[in-house]
Design a protein around this nucleic acid. Structure first.
Lengths: 339, 339
DNA sequence: ATTGGCACTCAGATTTGTCGAGTGCCAGGC
DNA sequence: GCCTGGCACTCGACAAATCTGAGTGCCAAT
């Protein structure tokens, strides 16, 4: 084994020990718990180099070493072995998700499951509207010149929007609108909706033109221009599990994690192929500089419908969390494809 | 002023001081900051009595006094003056809620508003299904012998449910089912739905009988037997504001507040007429023994559609929170009535 | 290159001492 | 009879002093 290899072994050992004990780890403890085949003194030399290169740091003189963000990064990229879930765990995931009744239920179960598997806070994004297709668009008269539009997507997501109309409409008008809208939109992806909506203006009866114009404008605005992305969270209590991880206070962390926008940034920019890990300072948001995020996209087939992931202290079990997140995403994708 | 009256004044002063400073309050500080017109020694005597009666306690010998749950209770019931919101606050509430687009939006804004006004964690219950009326019931064929039912209530709540059918149905069948269901259910309260549903079985075409039976069973189960109550929370970060309030750790608190069931118990059992305050140990849930809950029902007119409230440390500004909760509930009621 | 030895550092725990806020009690005054 | 000032006492909070031990860097020997 080259000395370079051993240096990395030492880093791996430091990360593993620190993650499990939460104590800065010193050369002696290291040589006792891992059989690296060398004496503490040698390990000390390696550690000195690792520290110089910025992979580890000591909280204060004469304390053990702690991995830096850069150290965790190297660990995640090159040192952590994939950690397959146990068969019981896989079965648990499947059976836990299988009983779900509707989309909300699927997502509720998913966050709960993720939180339990990883002991971290879990986040799941609703299937993004732009990549969903229209299953049905319902038009309901709610009185006094107002219509409620209810969109149901192929992923089971239900979105509503109330529109003020320029004129009153009768029941037959509503039926006609519903028929026309569904004829042109059903099965279409929302991204293609604007064109379909444009052609629709021509085919509708002249008397309904103003109403249809309003509807089209409302739909484009709600669903295409500013599609409402939503997330669901769970297991927040896990952030308080070991209070030691957030010494100052976890107030800024919680505050950050309450903002939908922040959450979306965290888990929304993923594809379904590979797990994304953001470590400590790699997170752009100030309040999350002491946390790490493990996220991945889920989806039916190749297109990612949305993201899901977990948030926890940088001192987390990356290998385990990555496996759990990946596995759950796969099952969720299957669930949504099959419904 | 009788000595009995002064004793209560002392208690009031202790509660107020302790709430604002978070320090156990002693006789000297008390006599300086409130002009009770008596010397510290007299106050001490009063405090001794109050302690004997269980309204206050000392954390340790030779520290100031701290209100007990019983002390807070007396304060809330008899000593706290109503604390009307300022005009700007009222305007803020109104303008903040006015822009809401749909029910979800109303509730999102409500929790946010409550959290900001009270600096506590806020909870809002969705309008309960049993007391809502049907505005529209949509039936959508989602393929492979399955129908999706989408219920829209007069409060704007949208609930979905997927049903497995015994036989396949065609488009005309779906239209017919939709027509029949809406004819019989529209405008009806969900509590009365079962009778309406029963009569429906007779008027439908014989070929559709099995399908209709399934639908009726599904509706009754989802909406009447086990109506899904939901809550939305916000401002959880406020619980960490002063870490001093939850010395042990707020883990149990957060854990409790993640359970929908627990939250429902907290704010679900209210009427819209009066604000309910549960102090410390009065909460049945173990993890919430150090928290207080201020809740009230909101509703259009006399029937409470749901509850809303705030959760915080027992050391909270009861008067202010009660006013805020009451005021917000009134506006929410107006919002929902007007839509 | 690795190792054992050694002097050094320094955070954390423990001890000790001081300080002061707060208390209960009592005798005297209104 | 109630209030008040005085007084001795208690005890937590805080600070300084001390101790301990894990951990380090360096160096000479292998």
């Amino acid at each position: 084994m080259s000395s370079e290899d051993r240096k990395l072994d030492v880093l791996r050992a430091i990360v593993e020990d620190y993650v499990s004990t939460n104590d800065p780890v010193g050369s002696k403890a290291l040589s006792e718990r891992h059989n690296l085949g060398v004496s503490p003194a040698t390990i000390r030399n390696d550690m000195a180099v690792l520290e110089e290169e910025g992979y580890i740091a000591q909280p204060h003189t004469s304390a053990g070493r702690v991995p830096t963000d850069k150290g965790y990064r190297l660990f995640v990229d090159r040192l952590s072995a994939a950690k397959p879930l146990s068969a019981p765990e896989r079965r648990a995931i499947q059976s836990f998700l299988e009983g779900a009744a509707d989309l909300d239920d699927v997502l509720r179960r998913t966050v709960r499951l993720l939180a339990q598997l990883t002991h971290q806070m879990a986040v799941v994004q609703y299937p993004t509207l732009t990549r969903s297709a229209v299953r049905h668009l319902e038009v309901v008269d709610v009185g006094s010149h107002r219509l409620m539009l209810v969109l149901i997507t192929d992923t089971g997501r239900v979105e509503q929007r109330v529109l003020e109309l320029p004129v009153a409409v009768c029941d037959e008008d509503v039926t006609e609108l519903r028929r026309t809208l569904n004829m042109h939109l059903q099965g279409r992806r929302l991204a293609e909706a604007p064109q379909a909506l444009a052609t629709m203006l021509d085919v509708v009866a002249p008397a309904l033109q103003p109403v249809m114009t309003t509807i089209v404008a409302g739909l484009v605005e709600t669903l295409v221009d500013q599609p409402e992305e939503r997330v669901m969270t769970g297991g927040t209590a896990n952030l308080t599990r070991s209070a030691l991880d957030f010494p100052n206070s976890l107030h800024p962390v919680l505050q950050a994690l309450e903002e939908q926008v922040v959450l979306l940034r965290l888990i929304g920019e993923v594809d379904s192929s590979s797990v994304l890990v953001r470590i400590g300072g790699e997170n752009t948001h100030e309040g999350l500089h002491r946390t790490s995020v493990v996220s991945v996209g889920y989806g039916a087939g190749d297109t990612a419908l949305g993201g899901l992931g977990v948030v926890g202290p940088t001192r987390m079990d990356y290998a385990g969390n990555m496996s759990a997140v990946r596995a759950v995403a796969r099952y969720v994708g299957q669930m949504l494809a099959g419904s």
